[in-house]
Amino acid sequence: MQQMVIANRLADGAVVFLAAGDRWCTWIGDGRVLDEAEAELALATARRHEAENLVVEPSLIEVTVGDDGVPRPVAIREHIRAFGPTVGDGSTRPQVAGDNR
């Protein structure tokens, strides 16, 4: 099972994914896909960042990686968090090159 760590950034609430080097990125394609052995360690890192007030409510989500290399969350809810609302005019979609602070 492939997983990723998802959270909301504290200061602006943006959906973020844990990436290589324990950084957080806003585009899911920049995030790190974890195997089961890595997942718990990554979540522990995220919890530490939660305690350090970088993010809130980190959790592991299940993903599948498509042919384009972009991970896609299995649950609809997390899919919507990653790719934005399924209605509207596109202004609500995440930018591909998010600011990876």
Binding site: N8, L10, A11, D12, G13, A14, V15, E50, E52, N53, V56, E57, R77, I80, R81, G84, P85, T92
Partner: peptide, 25 residues
């Protein structure tokens, strides 16, 4: 933001002011 309040401490305060954390923001 400075880390002097935890999320659990802050949540009831922000809710009293109409601030929720939802899926995207």
């Amino acid at each position: 933001l400075a880390g002097e309040l935890t999320e659990d401490q802050f949540k009831p305060l922000r809710l009293k002011n109409g601030v929720y954390l939802q899926l995207h923001a």
